[in-house]
Nucleic acid binder design. Sequence first.
DNA 1: TATTGTTATACTCTATAACTATA
DNA 2: TATAGTTATAGAGTATAACAATA
Lengths: 144, 144
Amino acid sequence: MSRRSRVDQVERLVGQLFGAVDVLQTHFEQCATELDLTPQQARLLSSSGSPCSQRDLAQQFCCDASNIVGIVDRLEQRGLVVRQPSVHDRRVKQVVLTPDGEALRERFRVALTANMPGLSSLAGAQLDQLEMLLAHFTNTPVST
Amino acid sequence: MSRRSRVDQVERLVGQLFGAVDVLQTHFEQCATELDLTPQQARLLSSSGSPCSQRDLAQQFCCDASNIVGIVDRLEQRGLVVRQPSVHDRRVKQVVLTPDGEALRERFRVALTANMPGLSSLAGAQLDQLEMLLAHFTNTPVST
DNA sequence: TATTGTTATACTCTATAACTATA
DNA sequence: TATAGTTATAGAGTATAACAATA
């Protein structure tokens, strides 16, 4: 393959990748909205190992720590999470899912997996291929 | 392959896919921020065939038409786009990129393609595989 | 009557800066 | 001093509802 055609292919793939991102993002938002969650609330509910400091959440979200306050506030008002002061460091508050929070997290996970765009039309061997190819993305550190 | 193991694989893939979405989204945001654009401003600048009504943009963005007003306002204030009343339907305003807008659109495209996470570590045959697999996502209509 | 763009409103998410309580 | 969480603030994106101009 010539150098030029690879460049062309990468160009095409960039467009295709962000097209797929758009589809997946929309799917995520729809699943969240159906459970009366904003995307970020659904993300927080889904993401963490349940006991997780707000600082760690900010790092996971690549955002300022102050933003986590509001998201946790609204989840806490709905009784989906609680703030537990850490016994080792009293500055730290662990965000822990309540039973209601765990239940909603599970409902969200099921909704997200069902009707997942793209995957249903893929055969087993293609799922294997996709799994290997995606590893190149999730293991690639974001260039600084 | 048993039914059960396919379910497990899909579960893994869902997590992997949204991990990749996160990486790609972050890359998009970084490229936008470096050009002093918000992600939505960069999206509008990149997305459309340049003459495009605000109604069409709202459909592309899957959002209410009123949201487009503010995004176009801020791009117009920076001289990157102009609103042109349509000659065929005077209700419609076409959003058109200015030369500055076209230049910035191109700078963004180049930045987005360079250092694209994931792709640089893929060989040519793998790029072909990825291209075929991604077609299943971008061609899949979002379930309603 | 229906549609396009707009405005007003309210909510969420975002970064920044300043504060508090702990370490 | 440094760090975890908070508050205040300002800007951007979002949906909803109402409106003017046009079809």
